[in-house]
Simulated scan of single mutants.
Amino acid sequence: MTSTVLHIDSSARTENSVTRSLSAEITGRLAPETVIRRDLATPLPLLDEAWVGANFTPADQRSDEQKALLAQSDALITELKQADTIVIGTPIYNFSVPSTLKAWIDLVARVGVTFNYTETGPVGLLEGKRAIIAVASGGTQAGSDIDFATTYLRHVLGFIGITDVELVAADQLSMDEEGSMQRAKSAIEALAA
């Protein structure tokens, strides 16, 4: 049994969203003791020069203003650290992830906090976690040469140490909605709780 799930939704649609439906079904199947919800329909702040400056200021030298600029990022990282499993619901918008999910990624990928650079390259610091990505698309086939969403998510999750990544895809819905949804439901049924 999964203890804590971080359930992230990034679809702009708050109703009739395939990814929201799939991610909720996945979270229910996992039957976690605790669910941390993060709905990115309420956008996060984008990185700016002041935030970058705060981030690269050593923690013991940050001003109160810099600490305040990093507070949202710190809270998002705390959610990630608390979770055993991360469930991400994301549509493919224009071959990639929604800008709201990219904003979340920018806020959680922090050197010295979720990854480090070493002599042999970057090392993720959030090891031992599982991620399940619920993705939907109108025409883009998940894992294809034009899918820059799931490939990007797998890479960035691995970059911060989360290498156990599974995909539940309701892709190419415009071409075969019934078949695509059935394949996604079968993938959810096959997930180990």
Rank of each mutant, 00 (worst) to 15 (best):
P32Y: 11
R29E: 05
L47E: 11
T42A: 15
R20Y: 04
A50I: 01
S21Y: 12
D48H: 06
T19D: 00
V52S: 13
F56Y: 15
L44H: 02
A24V: 00
E33D: 11
R20I: 00
L30M: 06
L44M: 06
I26H: 01
S63T: 15
A31K: 08
L22S: 00
D39Y: 05
I26P: 01
A54N: 10
G28R: 09
R62L: 12
Q61L: 14
Q61C: 07
T19Y: 02
I26S: 00
R37V: 00
R13K: 14
L47P: 00
L47S: 07
L46H: 15
G28I: 03
T57R: 14
I36V: 06
R29D: 05
T14P: 00
R20W: 03
T57M: 12
D60V: 11
A59D: 15
V18H: 04
Q61M: 14
A54T: 08
E15G: 07
N16M: 14
V52K: 13
D39L: 03
E49K: 10
A59M: 12
R37D: 05
L46W: 11
R62D: 07
F56V: 06
P43A: 05
D48T: 05
T27D: 05
P58K: 12
P43C: 05
A41F: 14
T19F: 04
R20F: 02
L47M: 10
P58T: 03
D48Y: 04
A59G: 08
A41T: 11
T42H: 13
A54R: 06
Q61F: 13
F56W: 15
S23I: 03
D60R: 09
P43G: 02
T34Y: 01
A12T: 02
E33M: 07
G53L: 07
T42K: 15
A24R: 08
T57Q: 15
V18R: 02
R20D: 02
G28Y: 11
R37L: 05
L46A: 14
P32K: 09
V18W: 03
G28M: 11
V35Y: 00
D48R: 01
E33N: 11
S21R: 14
L30D: 02
S23C: 06
P45C: 04
E25T: 15
E15A: 10
P58N: 13
T34G: 01
L22W: 01
R62F: 10
A50P: 15
P58F: 08
L40W: 08
A54W: 09
A31V: 10
A12L: 14
V18C: 07
S17N: 02
R20A: 03
L22K: 06
R37S: 07
T57E: 12
R62K: 11
R38S: 02
S63F: 13
D48F: 05
S63G: 08
T42Q: 15
E25C: 05
R37T: 01
L40M: 09
V18G: 06
